[in-house]
């Protein structure tokens, strides 16, 4: 099992790590030949929020090498806090080398960082982030959840705006109803005993979803009859706020898909377009009844 790389875009990697830091205490990073994936939450438990992130390796690494008996895939579990702390030291570093190493019998993601101090002198830094290498049976559980096709898909307004609103709504109720239609309208609704708050957006874009080969996606049978009919999903406010932490990466395109009454799927694209190679987070938030 071998893994090594030189980090060329530490800033992006730090931002990616920071935006998923709050989701869970530990997450899994999957290194494959082509992609680096961040995985939060096990799919065997479909009741919890999950996140799948990916970025093509050449966007953040160079001299990248990954080898393993498991189809050249390496799954490592890291502590979110430690990973972010270690990675932050790479900020504006002159050179960063990453490798999977064993120290005192423990597996570590070892970062060798060359930086310059305030006075311009060299500063050599080693950050050893403890990891746990997952066995093949554990990694088999980490698959994206299967969901029914959505009724509505809509581009969200800027996440920073949503975040301010969500943080206000959080003080009012524990759950939020997200509703949208194919006519560019989105509503966030919080109901408490004494008050009922609705925030609505108009004139949003309902993008055309395509398949990887470029042909338009087939219209699902569950589609709503009218463009103005709303699909609703009631989710935990904390889950929704956690998703909004991805505003750190300042994404241009965030697509919100609603499977009526069942789940909320959010596609966050890190790049300029909706190219998943430039970096993508997919959040799966399950519906909560009461």
């Amino acid at each position: 099992m071998r893994l090594r790389a030189r980090i060329t875009n530490a800033g992006l990697l730090i931002k990616m790590a920071q935006s998923v830091e709050k989701l869970s205490k530990t997450w899994v990073i999957l290194f494959t030949r082509e992609y680096v994936h961040f995985i939060v939450g096990k799919s065997s438990v479909s009741e919890t929020m999950q996140m799948f992130g990916q970025i093509k390796q050449d966007r953040i690494f160079e001299e990248y090498l990954v080898e393993s008996a498991l189809n050249n895939q390496i799954f490592v579990e890291v502590s979110a806090e430690q990973f972010v702390r270690g990675l932050k030291s790479c900020h504006q570093a002159l050179d960063v080398k990453l490798k999977l190493a064993k120290k005192d019998g423990w597996p570590m993601l070892s970062l060798n960082i060359t930086n310059s101090s305030r006075t311009g002198n060299r500063l050599y830094l080693t950050q050893d982030i403890p990891v746990r290498v997952l066995q093949s049976d554990e990694s088999a559980e980490l698959t994206e959840p299967e969901v029914e096709s959505q009724q509505v898909h809509i581009l969200l307004p800027p996440l920073n705006d949503l975040k301010t609103i969500a943080e206000r709504l959080k003080a009012i109720g524990t759950h939020v109803v997200v509703a949208a239609n194919m006519n560019g309208e989105l509503v966030l609704k919080v109901v408490a005993d004494a008050v009922r708050v609705e925030t609505s957006f108009k004139g949003l874009i309902n993008p055309e979803l395509g398949q990887p080969d470029g042909t338009p996606a087939p219209t699902p049978q569950t589609a709503l009859k009218h463009r103005t009919a709303f699909a609703h999903v009631r989710v935990d406010m904390r889950d929704f706020v956690k998703f909004l932490h991805s505003s750190i990466v300042n994404p241009k395109n965030v697509i919100c898909c609603i499977v009526d009454g069942q789940s909320l799927l959010l596609y966050v694209y890190l790049g300029q377009n909706t190219d998943s190679d430039d970096g993508q987070f997919i959040y799966f938030i399950p519906a909560r009844s009461h």
């Binding site: 270690g86 002198n121 050599y124 080693t126 050893d128």
Partner: peptide, 11 residues
């Protein structure tokens, strides 16, 4: 997290 820092004595 294990951190090791080597500093230039010029600092």
């Amino acid at each position: 997290l294990q951190t090791e820092l080597q500093v230039d004595v010029e600092d």
